[in-house]
């Protein structure tokens, strides 16, 4: 698990034609506690996804610092930050089985075969998808595909799991089911979860810690129980 801290984090999108720069993240000072389920909320276009991707290292920050457990990771690649990212598009390899999809990050790290098998089977069991091990994604429902994506995110035992509206493409019943599963998983794993959503009900159910954004800045950040008692 890891605490996440940012100091004056800035990200601009530059319009070369108009020769202007728009601040998508503006002087973001954040302090996310370790091991907690932090939910980032805010209106569309306020910079939630950009914040997530910058913290994950998928896009570089233009200014400011990012710290994981006190260590400066601002210039570190995603693979060096020990993080996972789950998005709403699943991003599963269609030609690989569920087992191979989940095993993929471990194969990149050259994890020994028997340990790889054990960790993949554990991750599949955690998401109740052991049955699907030999199936390919085409046969799976949206909810099952997202479970596979989450299993793949968890299998590498990351310090932080970033989730960008992972349930938004799913029907209400499946969203509810998976939200409960995520809550249980966050209680049993040691990872810090940073979860972006625009769904208030989801945020209320999942969050230990709330970060509210507006126009690229942090409006407030506090424990969820205090936020919902305001």
């Amino acid at each position: 698990m890891a605490s996440i801290k940012t100091k004056k984090l800035n990200k601009y999108y530059v319009d070369k034609k108009e020769k202007t720069a728009t601040a998508v993240l503006y002087d973001v000072d954040l302090d996310i506690p370790d091991g907690k389920f932090t939910v980032v909320v805010g209106p569309s276009g306020c910079g939630k996804t950009t914040l997530l991707k910058t913290l994950a290292g998928v896009i570089p920050a233009d200014d400011g610092k990012i710290y994981f457990n006190g260590a400066d990771v601002t210039d570190a690649l995603p693979k060096d930050r020990n993080v996972s990212l789950v998005t709403q598009e699943y991003a599963l390899y269609p030609h690989l089985t569920v087992f191979d999809n989940v095993a993929y990050p471990l194969k990149l790290e050259k994890v020994p075969a028997e340990e790889l098998r054990r960790r993949v089977n554990d991750a599949l069991g955690l998401l109740d998808i052991s049955l699907l091990s030999s199936r390919k994604p085409a046969k799976l429902s949206g909810g099952q595909r997202q479970r596979v994506a989450i299993a793949r995110a968890l299998v590498k035992e990351p310090d932080v799991v970033f989730m960008d509206e992972p349930l938004s493409n799913l029907d209400a019943a499946t969203r509810k089911e998976l939200a409960v599963k995520l809550k249980n998983i966050s209680a049993t794993t040691r990872a810090t979860f940073v979860y972006v959503t625009h769904n208030d009900e989801e945020a209320r159910f999942l969050a230990d810690y709330i970060v509210k954004m507006e126009n690229g800045s942090i409006k407030l950040a506090m424990p969820a129980k205090d936020y919902y008692n305001l």
Binding site: L131, K139, L140, S141
Partner: peptide, 13 residues
């Protein structure tokens, strides 16, 4: 990564 549209029903035993 092109995905086929997901079936509406879960794949079960």
């Amino acid at each position: 990564l092109k995905q086929r549209p997901a079936p509406k029903k879960d794949f079960t035993a």
